[in-house]
Amino acid sequence: MLTRRIIPCLDVKGGRVVKGVAFLNHRDAGDPVALAAAYDAAGADELVFYDITASSDERAIMADVVERTAAQVFIPLTVGGGIRTTDDMYRMLRAGADKISINTAAVLNPQLIEDGAKRFGSQCIVLSIDARRVPPSEGTGANDAPPRWEVFTHTGANARATSLDAIEWARRGVALGAGELVINSMDADGTGSGYDLALLRAISDQVGVPVIASGGVGTPNHMLAGLVEGHADAVLAASIFHFGQYSVSDVKHYLAAQGVPVRQ
């Protein structure tokens, strides 16, 4: 049986791993290569390196981090942040990444999804979507209308609204060739109060590719909910692991005890 994946995400800035609360106030949580090896040993199913600054000179640092990690860690590695062209993708794949995560650049240029999928295969292209719940329209009394989520670009303090509907964008991304989706709830991110399950379920039930839940994890129970109620195929988390609140193996033991198939 295909197992559900637990994926630690390492936000990398200037060659170091950081993780902020709601993407802000970065705290240093260590060396990416050492952390990657530690997560591999602890049973992580994949790893994500997210380059949160991604100026062009820092991308060279990132390629070096990827290269050094890939020489030691033999599980799938995804790299995201600042990838704008298929040549950027190639550089990271060449350094040792297995998949490339794109977000803002895909919204600005959806062709990038198709070009990347054609050049490297859909299995290489992960579309990451930052979504925020649209408040119910005021004064219409339409409180029973289905919830909607809007796509934002430029993850972080300067996030920009796009007016794209998150479910529509997810479907389009898959049609263009995205092989997996990361769904990040901006409302939940950094709160530690759990994933936006309605958002996850709405997207997972409408696409034929794996969906990775992101944003809001505070406990292993939140991961269980993301997988069972949110219909996600994998869960991504950062701070909960980096600061030792729970280990990957704690989470796996918990999920296994609840009947979720995980890699032991």
Binding site: L2, D45, S122, Q123, V209
Partner: peptide, 11 residues
Amino acid sequence: GQKVPQIGWNQ
């Protein structure tokens, strides 16, 4: 009947 591609760990 299930997501294709299969992506992940299986026995």
